[in-house]
Amino acid sequence: ENVVSAPMPGKVLRVLVRVGDRVRVGQGLLVLEAMKMENEIPSPRDGVVKRILVKEGEIVDTGQPKIELG
C-alpha cells in the first residue's frame, strides 16, 4: 500500500511529516478531526514520504488519498 487514504471524512488539522521523511509503521502521519474528535492517522508500513496530497485545514472524504509512501 503506497497511498494512505482517509478512513473517515473530516478536516486535516495537522500534517506531522514532510516529503523525504522516513516513517515507521504506526508512526503518526497527520491529525484528522472527525465528529469533534482528533484522530492521528498512522503509517501502514515503513517507508519514505514521497508526496503529501492534502493541506492543513482541508476537508477530506472517506477513501481520499492523503499521503504517498515510497
Rank of each mutant, 00 (worst) to 15 (best):
Ala34Thr: 13
Val17Ser: 00
Gln27Arg: 03
Leu53Met: 13
Ala6Gly: 06
Pro65Phe: 06
Glu40Phe: 12
Ile59Asn: 11
Gly28Ile: 15
Gly28Ala: 14
Leu32Glu: 01
Leu69Cys: 04
Glu68Gln: 10
Gly63Glu: 06
Leu69Ser: 02
Glu58Gly: 05
Val15Met: 06
Ser43Leu: 03
Glu68Gly: 05
Val17Phe: 00
Gly70Thr: 14
Leu16Asn: 05
Gly10Ile: 05
Gly10His: 01
Val48Lys: 06
Arg14Gln: 09
Ile67Leu: 09
Leu29Ile: 08
Gly10Pro: 02
Glu40Thr: 15
Gln64Pro: 02
Val54Asp: 01
Glu1His: 13
Thr62Cys: 11
Gly28Trp: 07
Leu29Met: 07
Gly47Met: 02
Arg14Pro: 06
Lys50Gly: 05
Lys36Arg: 12
Thr62Val: 13
Ile67Cys: 06
Ser5Lys: 13
Lys55Phe: 11
Thr62Ala: 15
Pro9Gln: 09
Val4Trp: 02
Val25Ile: 13
Glu56Asp: 08
Glu40Val: 15
Glu56Trp: 06
Gly57Met: 06
Gly10Glu: 04
Ile41Lys: 00
Gly47Pro: 01
Lys66Tyr: 15
Pro9Ile: 07
Asp21Pro: 00
Met35Ala: 11
Val15Trp: 04
Leu29Phe: 00
Ala6Trp: 07
Val49Pro: 01
Leu32Tyr: 09
Val23Gln: 01
Pro44Arg: 04
Leu16Gln: 04
Lys55Arg: 12
Lys55Val: 12
Gly20Phe: 04
Val3Thr: 11
Gly28Tyr: 07
Val23Asn: 01
Glu33Lys: 04
Lys55Tyr: 11
Ser43Ile: 02
Lys11Ser: 03
Leu53Glu: 03
Leu16Ser: 04
Arg22Tyr: 14
Glu38Asp: 08
Ala34Trp: 15
Gly28Phe: 08
Leu29Lys: 00
Gly63Ser: 07
Met35Arg: 10
Val49Asn: 00
Asp61His: 14
Gln27Asp: 10
Pro65Glu: 07
Asn2Val: 14
Asp46Ser: 10
Leu32Ile: 14
Arg18Gly: 11
Leu53Ser: 03
Ile67His: 01
Lys36Leu: 13
Asn39Ser: 12
Pro65Ile: 11
Leu29Thr: 03
Val49Gly: 00
Asp61Gln: 14
Asp46Asn: 12
Glu33Ala: 08
Glu33Gln: 09
Lys11Glu: 04
Val31Ala: 02
Gly28His: 09
Asn2Asp: 12
Glu1Met: 13
Asn2Arg: 10
Val4Leu: 08
Gly20Cys: 11
Val12Glu: 01
Val3Gly: 05
Leu53Ile: 06
Val3Glu: 06
Val25His: 10
Met37Arg: 13
Val3Lys: 06
Gln27His: 05
Ser5Arg: 15
Val3Phe: 15
Lys11Ala: 03
Val60Gly: 01
Gly20Trp: 03
Arg24Lys: 14
Val48Phe: 13
Gly70Trp: 15
Arg51Cys: 09
Glu38His: 10
Val12Ile: 13
Ile67Val: 10
Val23Met: 01
Gln27Ala: 05
Leu69Glu: 03
Val25Tyr: 11
Glu33Trp: 15
Leu13Gly: 03
Gln64Arg: 07
Val60Gln: 02
Gly26Glu: 03
Val12Tyr: 00
Arg51Trp: 02
Ala34Leu: 10
Lys50Ser: 10
Val3Ile: 14
Leu29Glu: 01
Val19Ser: 05
Val60Trp: 05
Arg14Glu: 10
Gly47Thr: 03
Glu68His: 10
Ser5His: 12
Gln64Leu: 06
Asn2Trp: 15
Thr62Phe: 12
Thr62His: 09
Gly26Tyr: 05
Lys11Arg: 11
Glu58Ile: 04
Asp46Leu: 05
Ala34Gly: 10
Gly10Phe: 00
Ile52Lys: 01
Gln64Ser: 08
Val23Ile: 08
Glu33Leu: 15
Gly70Cys: 15
Arg22Ser: 12
Lys66Thr: 15
Glu68Val: 15
Glu56Pro: 12
Val19Asp: 04
Ile59Met: 14
Val25Phe: 12
Val49Phe: 00
Gly10Trp: 04
Val25Glu: 12
Lys50Val: 14
Ile67Ala: 02
Asp21Thr: 06
Ile41Gln: 02
Gly63Pro: 03
Ile67Thr: 02
Lys11Gln: 06
Val15Gly: 02
Ile41Asp: 02
Pro9Asp: 06
Gln64Phe: 07
Pro7Cys: 12
Ile52Asp: 03
Met37Lys: 13
Pro44Ala: 04
Arg45Cys: 13
Val49Trp: 00
Lys55Met: 11
Pro7Asn: 12
Leu30Val: 12
Gln27Met: 08
Val54Arg: 00
Lys55Ile: 11
Arg24Pro: 02
Gly57Gln: 05
Val17Asp: 04
Glu68Ile: 15
Glu33Tyr: 14
Val31Leu: 08
Asp61Trp: 12
Val60Asn: 02
Met35Val: 09
Val48Arg: 08
Leu13Ser: 06
Arg14Val: 10
Pro9Arg: 12
Ile67Trp: 03
Val15Pro: 03
Val48Gly: 03
Glu1Cys: 15
Gly20Pro: 00
Gln64Val: 08
Leu29Arg: 00
Gly28Val: 15
Leu16Ile: 07
Ile59Asp: 10
Met37Trp: 07
Val4Tyr: 02
Pro65Asn: 08
Glu56Phe: 06
Lys50His: 10
Val48Asn: 04
Pro7Leu: 12
Val15Ala: 00
Arg45Ile: 15
Ile41Met: 05
Val54Met: 01
Ala6Pro: 04
Asn39Cys: 15
Glu1Trp: 11
Ile52Thr: 01
Pro9Phe: 10
Gly26Asn: 07
Gly70Glu: 15
Gly28Lys: 09
Arg51Thr: 09
Val23Trp: 02
Ile67Ser: 03
Asn39Gly: 06
Val17Ala: 01
Gln64Thr: 10
Met37Phe: 09
Lys55Ala: 11
Val60Cys: 09
Lys55Trp: 09
Val4Ile: 12
Pro7Ala: 12
Arg18Asn: 13
Ile41Leu: 08
Glu1Tyr: 12
Asp21Tyr: 01
Arg18Ile: 10
Glu33Val: 10
Gly20His: 06
Leu30Glu: 01
Asp61Thr: 15
Val23Thr: 02
